[in-house]
């Protein structure tokens, strides 16, 4: 139940745009709305491309040394095996990142995890506010037309005004 006269509020900053880091803001936003909370996400720096109509989030094992490198298919024993991929390979073999991205997507699908697009869609449908950072748009050359419908554009003050009255504020 809601405490007091207004719903609980959550303010998120999404600052990372890789496939792995795209999940936390959209998982939390969609779930918070399901728990009758109000939500706004401020997309800034590398998080801004998560608002693109054509979402191309990928993942780079080279930049994530702790990422488990496992095969989503094959015999059980092999699937549990964590492949020791040397930096020389993960950083230099062409197509390694797209392969890792594809494997991560397959694993997620197999484990019944929603796609980023699905979670984003649910977040918007259920009323989460998605705010794109104007400054990042200027710096990296984004136009509002490249973003999905319903995105607001604003800056630090827009976020802080909302966050000032929030019960949960997270920087992701």
């Amino acid at each position: 139940m809601n405490n007091g006269d207004r719903p609980k509020r959550m303010a998120l900053i999404a600052s990372k745009g890789t496939l792995d880091w795209a999940y936390p803001p959209f998982i939390l936003a969609s779930t918070a709305v399901a728990l009758d909370m109000e939500v706004a996400i401020f997309f800034t720096f590398y998080g801004l491309p998560l608002l693109m109509k054509d979402l191309k989030a990928s993942v780079s094992p080279h930049a994530n040394p702790a990422m488990p490198m496992k095969m989503p298919f094959g015999p059980e024993g092999l699937r549990d095996f964590n492949w020791p991929v040397p930096n020389l390979i993960s950083g230099n073999v062409p197509g390694f990142d797209s392969m890792a991205t594809s494997l991560m997507k397959q694993t997620f699908k197999k484990k019944g995890v929603a796609t980023i697009e699905e979670l984003r869609e649910i977040s918007i449908e259920s009323g989460a506010r998605l705010i794109g950072c104007q400054m990042t748009m200027d710096v990296f050359g984004f136009e509002k037309e490249q973003f999905i419908d319903g995105v607001e554009i604003g800056g630090a003050a827009t976020f802080l005004e909302y966050a000032a009255d929030s019960d949960i504020s997270l920087f992701i």
Binding site: I27, T31, V33, A34, L35, G112, V113, A114, I122
Partner: peptide, 13 residues
């Protein structure tokens, strides 16, 4: 069945 976090909550809602 078969769904992972947070889908069961979202579908329930």
């Amino acid at each position: 069945r078969g769904m992972n976090c947070p889908l069961p909550i979202l579908k329930t809602k």
